Simulated assay, not measured.
Amino acid sequence: MSARDQLLVVIDPVARRTDGESVRIAKDVLSAGAAVRLCLPDGPEDFAKALARRGARRLVVIGDDRALLRAVGVLHRERDLAGCVLSVVPVGASQTLARGLGVPVGAVAAARAVLEGAERRLDLLVDDSDGVVLGDLRIPPVGASAVGPRDSAVGASVRVPAGGFADGHAWLRTCQSFVRTLAARPSRPAAADGRSPARLRIEADGVMLVDLDQPVAGVHVSAGHGGFAQVEVRPTSVGAAAAPLRVRARTVTVSGADFRYRADAVVAGPVRTRTWTVHPKAWRLTLPR
């Protein structure tokens, strides 16, 4: 029997408590198609030990987005992420991240994808404290109310093609001119949800996009763009969010007064500075063919 047909199935304790029926269905489907070894960790420490002892077996996590994040985080910190093909069967209240990555909805469909799917290499955002981001990073951490919908911005976006940072930074003059124009205007005292706009210094590949004198309504960073992160900064202007600045970069640094951020399903901080770096094709996830 090949290693592909031997699975270590780690069932997150939250999934066992919240939706035991979906867990049972997933186990039945997986057991019908492969040799399954079950592991029922009681907490994060047992979870990490189970991953370390998987041997040649393929790793399958049954759990919610936090269980998926925990698995990738443990493998990254153990410097074993590149050597592991990870599979996930989403079970639990939080499944947005897994679905966004392409994992099927429902225990049966997700379990069949584990057995019949193919691995896909995905980019990873890693911060300077060794934290990982699989999908989206947002500042402030509570999303749409502070940042606003994508189609609500006024004016045109500043778009920079991949590799723009190597072309003499010609694009930067456009961004800086745009931001100086906004900074010359009195900014609104509060964001749409009543909070004061954040004052942050935001740098992409070492080049400053926004400084502390220009309040911002929100920052959004996402991985998975061919080795680059997509960075969107929404400055504030009089009475409304201004047109967003959008660039692609390999590193993003945010600094300023203490701020919190939402990395996938987890709110972190407060911190005064944090740098995120794209690791291209750093991890492997089993997805439907």
Rank of each mutant, 00 (worst) to 15 (best):
R77D: 15
V271G: 05
P90D: 05
A156Q: 02
T18N: 07
A223K: 03
R260D: 09
G33H: 03
V160G: 03
L101V: 07
P288T: 08
G226T: 12
R16P: 00
S222V: 04
F259T: 03
D64I: 02
G256V: 03
D5H: 13
L81Y: 07
R185T: 14
P189I: 03
P215N: 04
A67T: 02
P140V: 00
V179E: 04
A50I: 01
R24S: 13
L51Q: 02
I202C: 05
G224I: 02
F228Q: 10
A98T: 10
G164D: 10
Q95N: 15
Q176L: 07
V74L: 00
V267R: 11
V254P: 06
A162K: 13
A166W: 15
P280H: 02
R70Q: 03
D42F: 00
A242R: 03
A111P: 11
H76F: 12
V266E: 15
A162H: 15
G83C: 14
A113S: 15
D80C: 15
V105E: 15
T251R: 07
A243D: 00
R57C: 12
I139M: 15
A32P: 11
A229R: 01
A52R: 14
S145A: 15
P215W: 01
V207E: 10
R274L: 09
R173V: 15
D123Y: 04
D123G: 00
D136Y: 11
A3I: 07
A192P: 09
D211I: 08
P235C: 05
T18L: 11
G269R: 11
V105T: 14
T251S: 10
C84N: 14
H76R: 11
L134Q: 07
R250E: 09
I11V: 13
D213F: 12
F165N: 09
R17V: 02
G63W: 05
L124Q: 04
D167Q: 13
S129C: 07
F178Y: 13
H76S: 10
L285H: 00
G92F: 00
P280C: 02
L172S: 09
L81D: 05
P288S: 09
E116I: 13
L8C: 08
A198L: 09
R99H: 09
M208S: 14
D19V: 06
S2E: 14
W283L: 01
V216C: 05
G164E: 09
L124R: 06
R274A: 05
D211Y: 07
R159K: 12
A170T: 14
L81V: 15
E78F: 10
Q6V: 03
V29P: 08
V154E: 06
L212N: 12
V29R: 08
